[in-house]
């Protein structure tokens, strides 16, 4: 479809595009609007994107009065650890699943798939019992373990699918040249799998960065909250500080937007090559 569009069609194309872009962007603009309103002034029907009395009050309050900076630190700590664990373990396990026929391989792959059919929130109860027996309630370690275990199966499948598209002759050539199996993997295959590594990293990142239902069961003290859990705590029983909530929602989305922009080049190629099979 890479043909030149006739100028005549432009008007129709742009009308349709703008309509759908408006629908996708508007809800997000609405959050920005609310975050800029002074006080708890959610209760206006004004459609202005930038309110007349726009103020950064909520952002300032967020970064000064609330334990928000602590939550940012907690979220960053948990998310980065989960991302590293996800990428390192999945890149290795995916490779073994892709390159070796060992007993239990099919069973292993199927079990990984089945864990995906079980909603993370449903594992909450058994995991909660396990974590509390291990004494990991109110520890980041408990949360990191739970997130990693949730993100790993998808990442392993993704890496395995991508390795499948890389011809084994590449490692064989490296082995003939005297490289060990590990060196061949590390020096030859891993760099080629960069797009899939990027997606695995992004997926692990999003799992840990956005989650709050599991976190709510494991972390009890406000000082230990992650950002989404902290945001949740703004929605009190009596009053909700919507301005603060909206400002927090914008702040939590910024790193994800930045990551997507930064990684967009690899994003499509990572998903493409992994799904193309000979």
């Amino acid at each position: 479809m890479r043909h030149k569009t006739k100028p005549f069609h432009y008007i129709i194309i742009y009308a349709i595009v703008l309509f759908f872009v408006a629908i996708s962007v508007y809800p997000v603009l609405r959050v920005i609007t609310i975050s800029l309103r002074p006080g708890d002034n959610l209760l206006t029907r004004s459609l202005r994107i930038i309110p007349e009395d726009a103020t950064f009050e909520n952002y300032i309050k967020l970064f000064t009065n609330e334990p928000f900076l602590l939550w940012v630190r907690n979220s960053v700590l948990v998310t980065i650890t989960v991302t590293i664990i996800g990428v390192v373990l999945a890149s290795m396990a995916g490779y073994a699943f892709s390159r070796h026929k060992f007993p239990g391989r099919k069973l292993g792959l199927h079990s990984l798939l089945i864990t995906q059919m079980f909603p993370a929130t449903m594992l909450l109860l058994p995991l909660y019992i396990m974590i509390s027996k291990l004494g990991l309630i109110n520890s980041f370690l408990g949360l990191i373990i739970m997130y990693s275990a949730t993100a790993l199966p998808f990442c392993i499948w993704l890496m395995k699918g991508y390795y499948d598209t890389i011809p084994p002759s590449l490692e064989e050539a490296a082995n003939v040249d005297g490289a060990s199996k590990f060196t061949a993997f590390y020096k030859v295959i891993l760099p080629l799998a960069a797009p899939a590594l990027v997606i695995a990293a992004l997926f692990s990142f999003m799992t840990a960065w956005n989650e709050y239902i599991i976190a709510a069961q494991v972390l009890w003290y406000e000082d230990m909250f992650t950002i989404p859990l902290g945001l949740k705590s703004f929605q009190g029983n009596m009053t909700t500080e919507w301005g603060l909530y909206a400002a927090g929602a914008i702040v939590i989305s910024i790193p994800v937007v930045a990551l997507f922009l930064f990684l967009s080049k690899w994003l499509v190629s990572g998903l493409t090559l992994g799904s193309v099979k000979e």
């Binding site: 995991l127 275990a149 392993i156």
Partner: peptide, 15 residues
């Protein structure tokens, strides 16, 4: 080993 242990203990066992 590491990935399988992790998934077995914290995903399949809870299931």
């Amino acid at each position: 080993l590491p990935a399988i242990m992790m998934v077995m203990v914290f995903a399949i066992y809870p299931l």
